[in-house]
Simulated scan of single mutants.
Amino acid sequence: MKTSYVPNDATTIAALRWSIVIVFALFGIAKFAAYEAEGVAKIASHYPLFSWMYPIWGERGASNVIGTIELLTGAMIALGARYPLASLAGGAMGVFTFCVTLSFSLDAPAFWQVGYGAPFLGSTGQFLMKDAVLLAACYALAVNGQRRMRPGD
Results as ranks from 00 to 15, higher is better:
residue 17 R to E: 00
residue 79 L to V: 05
residue 147 R to N: 05
residue 25 A to M: 15
residue 108 A to T: 00
residue 13 I to K: 11
residue 106 L to C: 09
residue 85 L to C: 05
residue 33 A to F: 13
residue 140 A to C: 13
residue 61 G to V: 10
residue 16 L to H: 07
residue 39 G to R: 05
residue 72 L to I: 13
residue 2 K to S: 08
residue 133 V to A: 10
residue 130 K to N: 02
residue 26 L to V: 15
residue 50 F to A: 14
residue 84 P to G: 08
residue 47 Y to R: 12
residue 19 S to H: 08
residue 27 F to Y: 11
residue 4 S to G: 10
residue 44 A to R: 02
residue 25 A to W: 13
residue 22 I to T: 09
residue 61 G to P: 04
residue 71 L to D: 01
residue 134 L to K: 02
residue 37 A to W: 11
residue 136 A to T: 14
residue 118 A to E: 02
residue 38 E to H: 14
residue 95 V to Q: 02
residue 92 A to M: 02
residue 80 G to V: 06
residue 115 G to K: 14
residue 78 A to K: 10
residue 125 G to M: 10
residue 23 V to G: 03
residue 58 G to S: 01
residue 145 G to P: 13
residue 100 V to T: 06
residue 100 V to P: 00
residue 12 T to R: 15
residue 89 A to E: 03
residue 70 E to D: 02
residue 33 A to C: 05
residue 29 I to K: 09
residue 3 T to N: 07
residue 34 A to Y: 08
residue 97 T to F: 02
residue 62 A to N: 02
residue 94 G to W: 00
residue 121 L to W: 07
residue 125 G to T: 05
residue 108 A to E: 06
residue 122 G to W: 02
residue 116 Y to G: 02
residue 129 M to Q: 14
residue 110 A to P: 07
residue 38 E to C: 09
residue 73 T to C: 13
residue 68 T to S: 07
residue 2 K to M: 06
residue 15 A to H: 12
residue 13 I to V: 12
residue 6 V to P: 05
residue 74 G to P: 10
residue 109 P to W: 05
residue 24 F to T: 01
residue 79 L to K: 15
residue 151 P to Y: 04
residue 36 E to T: 08
residue 2 K to V: 08
residue 106 L to R: 11
residue 99 C to P: 07
residue 85 L to R: 13
residue 141 L to H: 00
residue 132 A to S: 12
residue 130 K to C: 03
residue 117 G to S: 01
residue 94 G to K: 14
residue 126 Q to K: 15
residue 94 G to P: 03
residue 34 A to R: 06
residue 64 N to A: 15
residue 51 S to H: 11
residue 100 V to K: 03
residue 98 F to V: 02
residue 46 H to F: 10
residue 76 M to F: 14
residue 115 G to N: 05
residue 109 P to T: 11
residue 69 I to K: 08
residue 104 F to G: 01
residue 3 T to M: 11
residue 10 A to D: 06
residue 108 A to H: 14
residue 18 W to F: 14
residue 45 S to Y: 05
residue 94 G to F: 01
residue 1 M to K: 09
residue 87 S to T: 06
residue 142 A to E: 00
residue 70 E to Y: 04
residue 4 S to P: 07
residue 35 Y to A: 04
residue 25 A to C: 10
